[in-house]
Design a protein around this nucleic acid. Structure first.
Length: 591
RNA sequence: GAUCCCGUAGCUCAGCUGGAUAGAGCAACUGCCUUCUAAGCAGUAGGUCGCAGGUUCGACUCCUGCCGGGAUCGCCA
């Protein structure tokens, strides 16, 4: 049992003895705030109506009873309605000895679930950007956190490989590409395809402008532009299975996938299964037909298919266009059903998708439930906020995006510059140095993104956000490297010590934090929120650095104390490394 | 118009299911490297928690209204 758990048991017994079983539920034990003396604080306000005493008197009464009933409490003090309790230092040192063998253990939950987690979900017409990075890092981290909470996680990607957007790239390449390939151009496949998407848009805009000058309205010009008509025709040919178009589509998508794979690899993420919308939309369409027969949906005069969601406080929603083609949500219905067929053991499905689609997912889940799928209630939308730049939103077509691959190489470069400038580690081995710069650069990027509450819109300032000091990934990594250095220099493997060593305040603070790790992980898992882990590991690293400064480890001559501090350092290091792993960040042993 | 999200220090962000005097980092200013890695530590300064009510022993936190920002409600994806 952790020190807090021991105290909880004690409080429950004492409170129920004093005021009856009924008030046990209102026991609230929290960490004592830094300005007061104590390990934990019991808030006594809820018990006043039972004690019929003033807050101070009630707190003293409980404090004295606790003190009498056990020997784990050192002393207590009372401030207003707050009972601050100090445990015997030995309670902490004994708990540390017990923890040593498995410091990062998280308790097994009552039910183990199989969770299907979707993230990334790219379009195949352009390379990934910073917004995708947030999605990918979130998804990957949540999957690691859920696994840590002993859940089975199936990571899936959904590639939006069909539609007018990819036809635009294809058409532009056909017209102006001159057979250019990733090999011939030296461009990464997704960037090459993205180049033609931008080119299409540029030429389309010129056409529209020309038409407007000829007297067309803007709306009409967009419809009448020859390029747009050609792209639409291409989409129809694709749907009809026209060979040449399908082959080009396959070729260009393959370039894109090869490009994405490099970015995924750089980010250290992966998937158990990839779904393609081109393979899903037919199932969606047939499901809509079934729903139409069951009366879940209805058909308008023009042939379009709808569902009325006004009962749920939502609107009417289109499911099939009047020409019979499917819309986005049609594919999503099909995909959801297919996934539960592929993985029948799934008990929960999570979609990592931006908050601009909050409404879409509300609608999707209601539709699935109306269609009679019992698992519809176990679908969740992990909704996250947009990444904005100082000059505003990122827009692919206007080129105001931070490209993912550029971002990654930029971070590596900065890590290298910082390391050289600070005169750190020996850089004689270029291979090892490259790995080091990658870990530090990626650590900075990943931590920067993941430390923010997912649902919040976040600001990314290219100049200022790339920081390596303070509340950053490299700060945490650095703390870990310091720990490894101490452990190595100790020349020991075994750090046994007696529980009666004297413990200083920085050590106590570090100890308290160490035992909070499982809570941080469980909360992160429950809320699907990696920022909980980031916050925790930052506090832990900060407290370690304080300890590092005030309590010499290797210079300590008392071997019990020295081994206690070595244990404390080692355990802290293991937790830092484990927590960082949950964020997808690797900790170098030296930096 | 309707629905949802957000509003905390100059900037970027914490603040757990209501608890003590609202916290970090960056930027600014002070100290600390002959002592386990100064990517560090210690400190100074910086706040009407958007505004106004309400709920109660207690509100940044919950409720209502308003103001400001964003998103969505399209035969877009």
């Amino acid at each position: 049992m952790t020190p807090l758990e021991q105290l909880e048991v004690l409080c429950r017994n004492t409170i129920s003895r004093l005021f009856g079983e009924g008030c046990v539920s209102s026991i609230s034990l929290q960490r004592t705030s830094a300005d007061f003396t104590g390990d934990f604080t019991l808030v006594v306000f809820p018990f006043l109506k039972f004690s019929k005493l003033k807050p101070e008197e009630t707190a003293s009464l409980i404090g004295n009873e606790l003190l009498k009933s056990t020997d784990i409490i050192l002393d207590f003090n009372v401030i207003k309605g707050f009972l601050n309790i100090r445990l015997q230092p030995e309670v902490w040192t004994k708990a540390l000895i017990a923890l040593k063998s498995d410091p990062t253990r998280v308790p097994t939950p009552p039910v183990k679930e199989t969770i299907l987690l979707e993230y990334s979900s790219p379009n195949t017409n352009k390379p990934l950007h910073l917004g995708h990075i947030r999605n990918i890092l979130l998804g990957h981290s949540v999957s690691e956190i859920l696994k840590k909470c002993k859940q089975t996680v199936i990571r899936v990607n959904l590639v939006n490989d069909r539609g007018i957007h990819i036809c635009k790239s294809m058409l532009a390449w056909k017209k102006w590409g001159n057979g250019e390939t990733p090999e011939s151009s030296g461009l990464k496949g997704d960037h090459l395809v993205g180049k033609y998407y931008v080119l299409f848009d540029k030429n389309l805009k010129a056409e529209i402008k020309g038409l407007i000058n000829k007297g067309f309205s803007e709306e009409e010009a967009e419809k009448q532009a020859p390029l747009m008509k050609e792209a639409q025709a291409m989409l129809r040919e694709w749907e009809a299975g026209e060979k040449e178009v399908v082959n080009l589509w396959k070729t260009m998508n393959a370039w894109v996938y090869a490009g994405f794979d490099i970015t995924y690899h750089d980010l250290g993420v992966g998937f158990e299964k990839t779904y393609f919308e081109s393979e899903m939309y037919l199932l969606g369409k047939s499901t809509v037909s079934e729903g139409l027969e069951k009366g879940v949906f209805y058909r308008e005069k023009d042939g379009s298919v709808w569902i009325d969601l006004t009962q749920e406080g939502l609107d009417k929603k289109l499911l099939l266009r009047s020409d019979g083609t499917s819309v986005y949500i049609t594919q999503d219905i099909g995909t959801a059903i297919q996934r539960f067929r592929d993985f029948p053991e799934t008990s929960k499905m999570i979609y990592t998708v931006g908050n601009e689609q909050d409404y879409h997912f509300k609608v999707l889940f209601v539709i699935l439930s109306r269609l009679g799928y019992s698992w519809a209630g176990n679908c969740r939308h992990l909704s996250y906020g947009m990444v904005e730049l100082p000059e505003g939103k990122m827009k692919s077509r206007e080129g105001t995006v931070v490209d993912a691959d550029d971002m990654i190489s930029e971070m590596r470069k900065t890590a290298e510059e910082m390391t050289v400038e600070l005169g750190k580690s020996d850089l004689s081995d270029p291979q090892a140095s490259k790995i080091l710069f990658n870990r530090i650069g990626m650590g900075a990027l990943k931590y920067f993104i993941l430390k923010v509450d997912p649902r919040k819109t976040m600001l990314f300032n290219p100049r200022e956000s790339v920081d390596f000091n303070g509340n950053t990934g490299p700060f945490v990594q650095y703390s870990y490297a310091r720990i490894q250095s101490i452990l190595e220099k100790s020349g020991q493997k075994d750090f046994s010590f007696g529980a009666s060593v004297s413990v200083l305040e920085p050590e106590l603070q570090l100890l308290r934090r160490i035992f909070e790790y499982p809570d941080a992980v469980l909360t992160a898992g429950k809320n699907l929120d990696p920022s909980e882990v980031a916050k925790y590991v930052y506090e832990l690293a900060r407290e370690f650095n304080s300890f590092y400064h005030e309590c010499p480890v290797l210079k300590e001559t008392n071997s019990d104390l020295r081994n206690f501090r070595l244990t404390l350092s080692g355990v802290t290091g293991e937790i830092i490394s484990d927590a960082m792993r949950l964020l997808g960040i690797e900790c170098p042993g030296k930096m």
